[in-house]
Deep mutational scan, measured.
Amino acid sequence: NQASVVANTLIPINTALTLVMMRSEVVTPVGIPAEDIPRLVSMTVNRAVPLGTTLMPDMVKGYA
């Protein structure tokens, strides 16, 4: 099973992502692959992402 990116904290809308905000976890449904974490750093989220939420491609500006 592939690990996905999961919010390690509440990420407010329009926040630039940092490494400490994200962790990898095997979850269903599958979200952004964990190997993309380095690429996500400094990208911003377009909605509030609660703790434990899987990051989906449409949640990160410029990812999809």
Score class of each variant (00 low, 15 high):
N1G: 15
N1W: 14
N1L: 15
N1E: 09
N1R: 15
N1T: 14
Q2I: 15
Q2P: 15
Q2E: 14
Q2T: 15
A3G: 12
A3M: 14
A3L: 14
V5R: 00
V5Q: 01
V6R: 04
V6H: 00
A7D: 01
A7C: 04
A7Y: 02
N8S: 11
N8R: 11
N8Q: 13
T9Y: 10
T9V: 12
T9A: 13
L10T: 14
L10H: 13
L10W: 11
L10Y: 13
L10Q: 09
L10M: 14
I11M: 05
P12T: 12
P12W: 04
I13M: 14
I13Q: 10
I13E: 15
N14W: 10
N14D: 13
N14C: 05
N14K: 06
T15I: 06
T15G: 06
T15M: 08
T15W: 06
A16G: 08
A16E: 08
A16H: 15
A16N: 14
A16R: 09
L17Q: 00
L17V: 04
L17A: 00
T18H: 06
T18A: 08
T18S: 10
T18G: 05
T18L: 07
L19A: 09
L19W: 08
L19R: 14
L19T: 15
V20E: 11
V20T: 13
V20R: 15
V20P: 12
V20A: 13
V20C: 05
M21T: 03
M21W: 03
M21Y: 05
M21S: 09
M21I: 03
M21L: 06
M21V: 05
M22T: 02
M22K: 00
M22N: 01
M22P: 00
R23G: 09
R23S: 08
R23N: 07
R23D: 05
R23W: 03
R23P: 01
S24C: 04
S24H: 12
S24Y: 05
S24F: 07
S24I: 07
E25F: 06
E25W: 06
E25S: 11
E25D: 14
E25M: 12
E25L: 09
V26P: 08
V27F: 02
V27S: 05
V27H: 03
V27N: 03
V27Y: 02
T28R: 08
T28N: 14
T28H: 14
T28C: 05
T28Y: 15
T28E: 14
T28P: 00
P29Y: 03
P29W: 03
P29R: 05
P29G: 04
V30W: 10
V30M: 07
V30A: 15
V30S: 12
V30R: 14
V30P: 11
V30E: 06
G31M: 02
G31H: 02
G31C: 03
G31Q: 01
G31W: 03
G31N: 01
I32K: 00
I32A: 01
I32Q: 00
I32R: 00
P33H: 10
P33T: 07
P33Y: 09
A34F: 06
A34L: 04
A34T: 07
A34S: 12
E35W: 15
E35F: 13
E35K: 13
D36C: 04
D36T: 08
I37P: 00
I37A: 07
I37Y: 03
I37E: 02
I37N: 01
I37C: 04
P38Y: 12
P38N: 10
P38T: 12
P38F: 15
R39T: 13
R39E: 10
R39D: 07
L40P: 00
L40C: 03
L40I: 13
V41M: 09
V41I: 11
V41N: 05
V41Q: 07
V41A: 05
S42R: 09
S42I: 03
S42N: 13
M43A: 09
M43N: 05
M43T: 05
M43I: 03
M43L: 12
M43F: 08
T44D: 05
V45H: 00
V45K: 00
N46V: 10
N46A: 10
R47G: 05
R47E: 09
R47C: 05
R47K: 12
R47P: 03
R47H: 10
R47D: 11
A48N: 12
A48V: 11
A48Y: 12
A48I: 07
A48M: 12
A48Q: 13
V49S: 02
P50L: 09
P50H: 12
L51R: 14
L51G: 15
L51E: 15
L51Y: 10
G52S: 07
G52C: 04
T53D: 14
T53C: 05
T53P: 00
T53V: 11
T53W: 15
T54L: 05
T54N: 02
T54F: 02
T54H: 03
T54M: 03
T54Y: 02
T54P: 07
L55M: 12
L55R: 01
L55F: 08
M56E: 08
M56H: 06
P57N: 06
P57H: 08
P57A: 14
P57G: 06
D58P: 08
D58S: 11
D58Q: 13
D58T: 14
V60H: 01
K61G: 07
K61P: 15
K61W: 15
K61S: 13
K61N: 15
G62P: 06
G62V: 04
G62R: 06
Y63Q: 04
Y63N: 04
Y63C: 04
Y63K: 03
Y63F: 08
A64Q: 13
A64H: 13
A64N: 10
